[in-house]
Design a protein around this nucleic acid. Structure first.
Lengths: 147, 147
DNA sequence: AACAGTATCATCCGATAGGATGATTTCCTG
DNA sequence: CAGGAAATCATCCTATCGGATGATACTGTT
């Protein structure tokens, strides 16, 4: 609002200045048209500038919630694993269990005996507080230890 | 551009009209100020309007991609379930299996005997082509039958 | 060198899971 | 009403899993 007042004052000053100039120098017949044209041009420019100023805030930032496919790469929560005292080998066996493999299949993949797998698996169940393999997988998923 | 010409012509006509009016009626001392004020106001309004018109296209729509963490509510792929011939009850038992429950626990939750659960579970394993419970869960997750 | 942690393998035994099969009941549909 | 799908329960047998326990070996750290 203060700006409007300033503009008004400036416009008034300009008018006065023009009038002064006109009275002093311009006594031609077409002083009227020149004066009118000047005022018109001035205020037209002012209006355009004002219009631009007023609409500048209309730059609209529209936040579009894009259903970005959160292709989560899955990062194992090693902190959680450490907190539970799970060793690297145990995490390995846990991951294979989560894939739905039997102890025998896990043994083949990990190049150890089935008995060893059973030992690891038992420790995993114990550390996860699970009574069953499926329960261990479920909890491991909740704790972000497996995908 | 054509508009500018039109505006110019209109302005000229207005000026002429005002001049005519002035010559005919307004011979007061302040005709000059009145005339200037009218022209100023007219062109100021025109300028504002023009400014708005010119900047209307500048309403910038800035689309910001917000990586909204899709807390997917999980919708079971019933089509997939149907394709596999899984019955509602079997899907129910499958979901409970995925939660890490034993057959006995599932029986208690579903208000049926453990034998019934075993039957359902067997069919589920068969229809999913799984040899083990854990494998069935893994496949069910892949097929979006369970969370 | 002693020790702790991890990984490995083993055995025994009970618990759980899975396969095969048959039976009954209910409900829906042609 | 007859037939089929679904759900229910059962029995027998085998496979897998899980718990308890003990042993050996390797690797760092103190």
């Amino acid at each position: 609002m203060r700006r409007v007042l300033v503009y008004g004052v400036v416009a008034g000053l300009c008018t006065a200045a023009l009038q002064l100039i006109e009275y002093r120098w311009l006594v031609l017949e077409h002083a009227f048209e020149i004066y009118g044209g000047l005022v018109a041009a001035l205020f037209a420019g002012l209006g355009i500038w004002l219009g631009l100023k007023l609409t500048r805030k209309q730059v609209e930032i529209r936040e579009v919630l894009v259903p970005v496919s959160v292709a989560e790469p899955f990062a194992r929560d090693d902190a959680q694993a450490g907190a539970l005292g799970l060793t690297p080998r145990e995490l390995e066996i846990l991951a294979l269990m989560a894939e739905g493999l039997s102890n025998r299949e896990i043994a083949e993949r990990a190049f150890v005996s089935e008995n060893t797998v059973k030992t690891h698996a038992s420790r995993v169940l114990d550390k996860l507080g699970a009574a069953r393999r499926t329960q261990a997988i479920q909890r491991a998923r909740e704790l972000r230890l497996v995908p």
